[in-house]
Simulated assay, not measured.
Amino acid sequence: MSLKKATILIVVILLIDQISKFYIKTNFALNEKLEVFSWFQIAFVENEGMAWGTKISDFVSFISDRTAKVCLTVFRVLAVFGIGYWLRKSIIDKSSRTLIFAISLILAGALGNIIDSVFYGIFFDSSLGQVATFLPEQGYDTLFHGKVVDMLHFPMWSGVLPNWIPFYGGSYFTFFDPVFNIADMAISTGIGILIFFNKRAFKTIDEKNEEVAFED
């Protein structure tokens, strides 16, 4: 995959992600839900931390939530530079299309969530009990303190688990409970490709040459 194609893929995913988030922020109040199907809902939530709402301060007690938020955002920015370098090097080295495609997905997703974390605090006012305004006189927070917008919820099954299931038997359970966004989907898909198609993604030069010779 060429740099041009990878860039187009990243831009398309980023646009879809940001347009969907902008729509949710300007049409839904926080925690508002819309049932599309019994197994799919649009559920507006905001994530202040990492995956599943985890915060750095949950593990490091001496760091305040706001300091932890800045640390997380800075880490995400640095990670994007690292992923971008990895993508560029993979294209220059003519790595497999599978690898370049996966890295492009991860980079697009990371960029999408970084925009929320860095800018949404000043781009929007609060969504609590109201629909947010874009570019208000005063945002809901400062630069680097924005919250990531999530809205995709797939509660495919919910009910009480059988008592014979260890630890969780008899408790109420929903599958799939987490709420996520397009950027999260891109990151998860990219990581999934690297895990499940590892051999195809990380082909050696000899393997690629053998494949080209076979095709010729």
Rank of each mutant, 00 (worst) to 15 (best):
M1F: 11
S2W: 06
S2K: 12
K4N: 10
A6G: 14
T7K: 14
I8V: 15
L9R: 14
L9I: 09
V11R: 03
I24L: 09
K25C: 09
T26R: 06
N31Y: 07
I42Y: 01
A43V: 03
N47L: 07
N47E: 05
N47G: 07
A51M: 13
W52A: 11
G53R: 09
G53M: 06
T54Q: 13
I56A: 09
D58F: 01
R66A: 12
R66N: 13
K69G: 12
V74M: 08
A79W: 01
G84V: 08
I91G: 03
K94A: 06
R97D: 15
T98G: 12
T98P: 09
L99I: 01
L99H: 08
I100A: 05
S104C: 14
S104N: 10
I106A: 07
I106T: 04
L107M: 13
A110P: 15
D116T: 03
S117Q: 02
Y120N: 01
I122Q: 01
D125R: 02
V131T: 11
F134A: 10
L143D: 01
P155I: 01
S158N: 14
G159C: 08
V160C: 08
P162D: 04
W164M: 08
F167E: 07
Y168Q: 11
S171P: 09
Y172E: 02
Y172G: 05
F173G: 05
T174F: 02
T174D: 02
T174Y: 00
F175K: 03
F176A: 06
P178A: 04
A186M: 05
G192R: 00
G192M: 08
G192S: 10
I195R: 00
F196E: 12
F197R: 04
F202H: 02
K203V: 05
K203E: 11
T204Q: 06
I205K: 12
D206L: 11
E210D: 13
A213I: 11
A213T: 11
F214I: 03
F214Y: 04
